[in-house]
Write a protein that binds this DNA or RNA. Structure first.
Lengths: 156, 156
DNA sequence: TTTAAATAGGATGTATATATCCTTTTTCGC
DNA sequence: GCGAAAAAGGATATATACATCCTATTTAAA
């Protein structure tokens, strides 16, 4: 039971971190990896993707990094989810029915259809800025049994 | 965006087919595979699992097959989903927050929490019998470019 | 008792998502 | 210009879900 992929969750976490810094502020991937608990090499891949898709701009070299292209309030979550995940199977019947319409769907159709619509609307109306609201002092889950590093720790 | 795994969807489709036949009626895996479009070898694995977990009884040999152990109205969907999928990450925050409670969750927490509760309740209160209601003349999605067989067709 | 049909169970193959590594290119500071 | 820092990009590794294959065992019927 999930809304979006783990990769997409990572993207959101990283973008929220950048949103807290503000549009156009360049931050290194290693800092973001440390702060958010996202595996560094994987994060750089996600950044490449987000850069190609116009969410981020990147700068190489010393004091390089990535920065938001837009104001956090101008980026909706649905834009990010659509860019990372494939939402085409979004409308497939959970029972695997070839046809499952509103008027004659499977027993799970109405409730799942409703839930999806609500979530979809929420993703459309929630911006990166909104996501930063409750995220001032976040602690993220870590992979495996790693230590829970506090953001900005320098003990790499 | 999904409720349960593809394996679980297969299990439900197969169990609905058996529910239409009634409790205790043995049906061969090949017939069920034909009728539901579930890959045969994979279906037998799912049946082994469902048998071990007490949903089905199996009979080997000529005119063998699997049969429901219980009346279709006595089996809830949540029982099946819990048996097939791992629902432990069910409560993990979609933003990856270590703590994400009702009183102080991430912005997506309320809506996702709600949706999950509704779906969970529906799965609890819907039985195999209920699932058969709209499933008399089902056509299921097929893998790859197979023919779209109508359910219960005898043109194996 | 033999044979065919069917599930059980183990092993293996494939696809995709997740994660890492290495080399190249760019950029800054000296 | 040189060296270090950092992202880009390609290749590879790992985990899991999905799917198939082969052999053994069981069963019913001829």
């Amino acid at each position: 039971m999930q809304i979006y992929s783990k990769t997409c969750e990572y993207a959101l976490r990283a973008l929220v971190y950048l949103a807290l810094k503000g549009k156009g502020v360049f931050i290194g991937a290693s800092e973001i990896s440390e702060a958010t608990g996202i595996p560094g090499p994987y994060l750089t891949k996600i950044f490449q993707n987000l850069t190609r898709r116009g969410f981020l701009k990147s700068r190489r070299g010393v004091s390089g990094g990535v920065a938001l292209c837009h104001q956090p309030e101008d980026v909706s979550l649905i834009q990010i989810v659509e860019a990372i995940d494939d939402l085409t199977p979004f409308d497939e019947c959970v029972m695997g029915l070839d046809q499952c319409e509103d008027h004659n769907g499977c027993p799970l159709h109405p409730i799942w259809s409703n839930a999806k619509n609500e979530i979809f609307l929420k993703l459309k109306t929630t911006s990166l800025m909104d996501l930063t609201k409750n995220s001032k002092k976040m602690k993220y889950r870590r992979l495996r049994r790693q230590r829970l590093l506090s953001a900005f720790s320098d003990d790499a």
